[in-house]
Write a protein that binds this DNA or RNA. Structure first.
Length: 99
DNA sequence: CCTGGGGCAGCCG
DNA sequence: ACGGCTGCCCCAG
């Protein structure tokens, strides 16, 4: 597992319940501003399920984005944490976690 | 609203 | 080691 990957996982895991982060922000925090795509790819292959809450990562326009286990599950998890989703989007102004 | 092109770590042959 | 392909994307047009 690379430095990059562990860094990303680490960052995702510190996002508190009820908050979300975006792929872009995450890439920034990981020190690779433009590697968002590669980063998303890393999230997809990881043991996301129980270990890392990668469902707290949404797209920078507020849309949910993809999820290895299906975005149905992703939405459920988010809602369960008290995040309201309207029009298939989350209100970043309210739920975005700033590093 | 949709579209295309950019960008980059990982994985595989 | 080397090149090509692939994605839980982003943004300008």
């Amino acid at each position: 597992m690379s430095e990059f990957q562990t860094r990303v996982l680490e960052l995702v895991s510190i996002v508190p319940r009820g908050k979300v982060t975006t792929y872009k922000e995450l890439a920034w925090a990981a020190g690779r501003p433009r590697a968002y795509r590669a980063m998303a790819n890393a999230l997809a292959k990881n043991p996301c399920p129980i270990k890392i809450p990668c469902h707290r990562v949404v797209r920078s326009d507020g849309k949910i984005g993809g999820y290895k286990l299906g975005m149905r599950q992703k939405v459920k998890l988010l809602v369960a944490e008290g995040i309201e989703i309207k029009g298939g989007k989350v209100d970043l102004a309210r739920y975005l976690f700033r590093y």
